[in-house]
């Protein structure tokens, strides 16, 4: 694969405060098309906040974020344009409990992309096949296991044909035996060339799939490097400390 790729996400000096708390302190990161970046760091380090600024679930107060050439400002049209291109997977799934699996997936294509119902249903069937649960289309989220729910969330996001997928700790709320089924879907997605930003503690996944690993601490991006360099040769003391804690 050619290494000269367009930039999908460009973040420059991004700052975010919650009241007096400085949650993001000048984060700059560029993600190329098709790149998989895993974000790790101790809890409270701002990694979730950071990926939530990319589809503006959190507003940044200084700096610039440009997604596929669209800069995120207060302009609602830009925000909605970016959200149409960016899929998101949440730690707590956030499926719509009053809709069936199929309705969860087809809702946004029908109402946002104005797709025909039959076309949307066809896409839903294909996507459920892709994430390995074609038989669950007519169930409600409450009837599925955590791993199945999270795969529906991925299918729901993919139904919008996003250019970028954000994962906010997708496996943290899952029982151990279900983590693999979700990671497998994510791996397949990464190999298909999707641009992905993944906040996770799954270091095995990071080592295997990530093009780069970005380490956050206290709202700062400490370093971002290839998995080999990150695990074998960390540059900063804080990174070393973190790795020593999680790799035991």
């Amino acid at each position: 694969m050619s290494k000269i790729r367009a930039s999908m996400i460009v973040c420059q000096d991004v700052h975010k405060w919650y009241g007096d708390f400085h949650a993001l302190r000048g984060v700059s990161l560029t993600v190329a098309q098709g790149e998989v970046v895993v974000i790790c760091g101790p809890s409270g380090s701002g990694k979730s906040t950071f990926i939530r600024t990319i589809n503006r679930l959190e507003e940044h107060q200084r700096g610039h974020i440009t997604v596929d050439g669209i800069e995120l400002t207060h302009d609602l049209r830009n925000i909605e344009a970016v959200r149409r291109e960016v899929g998101m997977v949440f730690q707590q799934f956030n499926l719509f409990p009053h809709l069936t699996v199929q309705q969860n997936i087809t809702l946004a294509p029908i109402w946002v992309l104005k797709m025909k119902k039959s076309a949307a249903n066809e896409i839903a069937t294909q996507l459920l096949e892709r994430v390995g649960i074609p038989e669950q289309a007519d169930k409600y989220p409450g009837q599925l296991s955590g791993g199945q729910q999270q795969r529906v969330v991925i299918a729901r996001a993919l139904a919008m044909s996003p250019k970028i997928m954000l994962f906010d700790e997708p496996t943290s709320a899952l029982d151990p035996e279900m983590i693999k089924e979700v990671l497998d879907v994510m791996k397949e997605l990464a190999h298909s060339g999707m641009t992905m930003l993944v906040v996770t503690h799954e270091m095995g996944f990071a080592r295997e799939v990530a093009d780069r690993i970005a380490f956050f601490d206290h709202g700062e991006l400490i370093e971002a490097n290839t998995p080999e360099a990150f695990f074998e040769n960390p540059q900063h003391d804080r990174t070393k400390l973190f790795l020593s804690q999680i790799l035991q």
Partner: peptide, 17 residues
């Protein structure tokens, strides 16, 4: 839960929808 709003917004649905 707040997550329901976030999931809908993240899919590109506006406030009214």
């Amino acid at each position: 839960p707040q997550g329901q709003f976030e999931a809908a917004y993240a899919l590109g649905l506006g406030k009214v929808l």
